[in-house]
Design a protein around this nucleic acid. Structure first.
Length: 403
DNA sequence: AGGTATTCACATGAAACTATTCTCTGAGTTAGG
DNA sequence: TAACTCAGAGAATAGTTTCATGTGAATACCTGT
């Protein structure tokens, strides 16, 4: 045993492909951000008055995932804070990601989190919201300064709470005597502003910046600039970067995806003891990402959801041979049967029908509404999980349903 | 043959119900003055 | 006495059921040739 382990360790340290893997991690903030100069400049010119101690317009930023919104804002934040420090300005910028679970659910938690970041403290529960709100104002208003609040994934919070809390934020200034506050909202959802209370919209959307997706070429450059430091010299096989970029470009130019692809490809090659990161591992990496996404979804899904999916899988297993199609009724019967068998309670057909639609949305199955004439109208369901990972999905389902 | 009506097996919507989570209030507790 | 903590009432929310209505085309049923 010991010998074998040594072998593994040896081969591991011998062909190290990575110089610094963390550079490819999503949490890494690079020195410069390629292809976002315009956006950063725009944002900077909007926020610049803050460096003269003046209030700035509220700013709203949108763009799809992996277009560098958060990164750019972080960068800008750091630069501005540096500058403010040098010149002794009382400027404060706080970043808050509204998507984090502990933060997002309620207005209370958002306020509590902000207060914590500003150096105050509130109990995790128990106080009325408006008291927390007052405390928040009190803390900000202690001294004369400019506070810039960056609310990332703000659409998530609004979805959970309602836009009322945003409205509160936008009128905050009228309650402040010393300090000035301004908001930067970041969202993935392009339509977000449209479904907002008009009062909030006009105030939050004073300035807007759109981050457009990277194209394949830009992705390549981003990857290249990071790969130089992340990998050792010459370990990338010809075309690896291009391939990663191409895959990611297909997914609306998601740079995060591109970086993940490259990193995982590297990990796969390293684990296989290869001397270089090969094209093949990029393919494997792509598959792995897809697979992990599916497995995560399946694992995290609620019980009834899993039960429904399992029914579909069982049915398509059987039906594949007789080449029959699967319909809602079949699924419900099977599901019902399974539930009885397992003595768990079951949902109505109405709900299962919705669950099927949800599974469809996640892309695990493909369901289209068809009419079978005299034999009614129903959904025709096709499983679209690749057979390669079907076994794993099955395993997870059986495990979590402990069958 | 050609046209119309029926009918099936669900889809799709809306409202009502329910269990859980949040918020808020007031009473009790603590600690400092 | 002010600040904090906590339990429990009431409000908000998510997940689901109940009730109601809608749908597209295969099939049954005419109708006149």
């Amino acid at each position: 045993m010991g010998v074998k382990l040594d072998e593994i360790f040896d081969s591991f340290s011998e062909n190290r492909l990575f110089k610094d893997k963390s550079i490819l991690q999503t949490s890494y903030t690079p020195e410069n951000i390629p292809h976002r100069d315009n956006e950063i400049k725009q944002a900077a010119s909007i926020l610049a008055p803050a460096l003269r101690g003046e209030r700035t317009s509220n700013l709203f930023i949108y763009g799809q995932t992996g277009t560098g919104k958060t990164l750019s804002i972080h960068y800008l934040k750091n630069e501005m804070m540096k500058r403010a420090k040098k010149e002794g300005l009382s400027l404060d910028m706080q970043y808050l990601n509204c998507k984090l679970r502990k933060v997002s659910d309620t207005q209370y938690r958002i306020l509590a989190e902000l207060i914590k970041k500003l150096g105050g403290s509130v109990p995790a529960t128990g106080l009325p919201t408006d008291q927390v709100y007052n405390k928040f104002i009190e803390i900000i208003d202690k001294e004369k300064k400019i506070l810039i609040l960056i609310l990332d994934e703000i659409d998530q919070a609004v979805k959970k709470i309602s836009d009322e809390f945003l409205y509160n934020f936008t009128r905050l200034n009228s309650e402040l005597n010393n300090a000035n506050i301004c908001l930067i909202g970041i969202s993935n959802d392009l339509n977000f502003l449209d479904n907002l209370d008009p009062r909030v919209r006009s105030s939050l959307g004073q300035e807007e910046i759109v981050f457009s997706p990277y194209n394949a070429l830009q992705l390549q450059e981003i990857l290249k600039s990071r790969a130089d430091n992340a990998f050792n010299q010459g370990v990338l096989e010809e075309g690896v970067i291009q391939k990663c970029a191409a895959y990611a470009a297909r997914e609306h130019g998601d740079a995060r995806r591109a970086l993940d692809l490259l990193r995982i490809a590297g990990e796969i090659s390293e684990r296989n003891g290869e001397k270089k990161v090969t094209m093949k591992s990029v393919d494997l990496s792509n598959q792995k990402i897809d697979r992990d996404k599916i497995l995560d979804v399946v694992q995290a899904a609620p019980k009834q959801f899993q039960m429904t999916l399992l029914s579909i899988i069982l049915l398509s297993d059987k039906k594949n041979k007789s080449s029959d199609k699967i319909f809602t009724g079949d699924v419900y019967n099977k599901y019902h049967e399974l539930c009885l068998e397992h003595k768990s309670d079951f949902l109505t057909q109405r709900r299962v029908s919705d669950i099927i639609a949800e599974i469809d949305m996640l892309g695990l199955i493909n369901a289209i509404v068809i009419s079978k004439g005299r034999h009614g109208r129903t959904k025709e369901i096709k499983l679209s999980i690749s057979p390669k990972i079907l076994d794993k999905v099955n395993l997870i389902l059986k495990e979590s349903l402990d069958l």
